[in-house]
């Protein structure tokens, strides 16, 4: 392999892993509060289509991203009201949200399929970007990649070092105890759900405005589901979520590289590689752990305050 190929693989690895990283960080926060939202895929698609339509009609990428975040928040608000106010089953509600989001995004995006926009461009820093191997990976990405890294740092610090993060973990572990010592369980869970929605919306719009600047039905292609698995196999640790997201990116690129090199394996089979590789690595990492100490203990269980 020549240097250029390696440079490009590393660049594309980070780029491909970015939407996954963003949506998984949102889901991580959500699950830390004890809420399991399976609606990631639907929220991502809504973010993707809304972001695309807004950018196409206003010409502003910024507005597109903001609109996508808003769309994700609104979708998660539906989830929040149904699971928190009506105490509905989180799994069923999340599944319904994904089906709803998939259908609705296809419906409102019908007239936008195949329309071209100018997507978010990578930055170019003279000299640094042209460095061999790491130049494009570190200094030639688009702004959202750097934002995703900032988000990772923020989430990592929040969970491990901040007081609100401690409250978040406490609520996810034992909402009844949290309520008994006076922590606002409902508020914490709502905020976590909305953050998860915002991140899913942003991740969706990264697909339609930066990664492949166009709108296509079902364009998230299961990334929402992979993000859910990622959080579990990352043992609810932010640093492992980052690792898993980039692994997924690397495997996605490698399967294209292998095809390009003319491997005589069915391309469909090769396309499963990123999913298999990511899960395999994380399963190995998370084996031999005491699962009762890793998962938020109240995950998926509704909380009823007794008065």
């Amino acid at each position: 392999m020549d240097i250029d190929l390696i440079t490009n693989i590393l660049y594309a690895m980070v780029r491909t892993g970015t939407p996954l990283l963003i949506v998984a960080l949102g889901e991580l926060i959500c699950e830390k509060s004890g809420v399991l939202n399976l609606g990631q895929e639907g929220m991502m698609l809504m973010g993707a289509v809304v972001g695309f339509i807004v950018t196409l009609s206003t010409g502003s990428l910024t507005l597109g991203f903001l609109a996508a975040i808003l769309a994700g928040i609104l979708m998660s608000l539906i989830f929040g009201v149904i699971t928190m106010e009506l105490s509905a089953n989180q799994v069923a509600t999340g599944l319904a949200l994904t089906i709803f989001g998939t259908g609705l995004s296809a419906f409102i995006g019908t007239n936008y399929v195949g329309k071209p926009i100018t997507g978010l461009e990578p930055i170019d820093i003279p000299v640094l970007t042209d460095l061999p191997i790491i130049g494009r990976m570190l200094f030639g990405q688009d702004l959202l990649v750097y934002l995703s890294l900032a988000l990772f740092g923020g989430v990592y610090w929040f969970i491990n070092h901040s007081r609100p993060g401690l409250i978040l973990k406490a609520v996810g572990e034992n909402p009844h105890s949290a309520n008994a010592i006076g922590l606002p369980v409902f508020k914490v869970r709502y905020l976590a759900i909305l953050f998860g929605g915002a991140m899913a919306g942003l991740a969706g719009s990264y697909l339609s405005l930066a990664y492949t600047p166009l709108w296509m039905e079902n364009m998230s292609a299961g990334r929402g589901w992979i993000a859910l698995a990622l959080v579990v196999f990352a043992s609810w640790k932010a640093e492992r979520v980052l690792l898993g997201a980039w692994l997924f990116g690397l495997a996605s690129i490698l399967h294209l590289v292998f095809q390009g090199m003319g491997f005589s394996v069915s391309p469909n089979l090769l396309a499963t590689l990123p999913y298999l590789a990511t899960i395999a690595v994380l399963v190995i990492l998370s084996s031999n752990q005491n699962s009762r100490l890793v998962a938020p203990i109240s995950l998926g269980k509704p909380f009823y305050a007794k008065t």
Binding site: L166, A170, S177, A178, L293, I297
Partner: peptide
């Protein structure tokens, strides 16, 4: 409390800090 209101996966200090 009779049924303790502690968080198993947190340390003693973190538990007390929460309250």
């Amino acid at each position: 409390f009779q049924h303790f209101s502690l968080f198993d996966t947190l340390t003693v200090t973190e538990n007390i800090a929460l309250a």
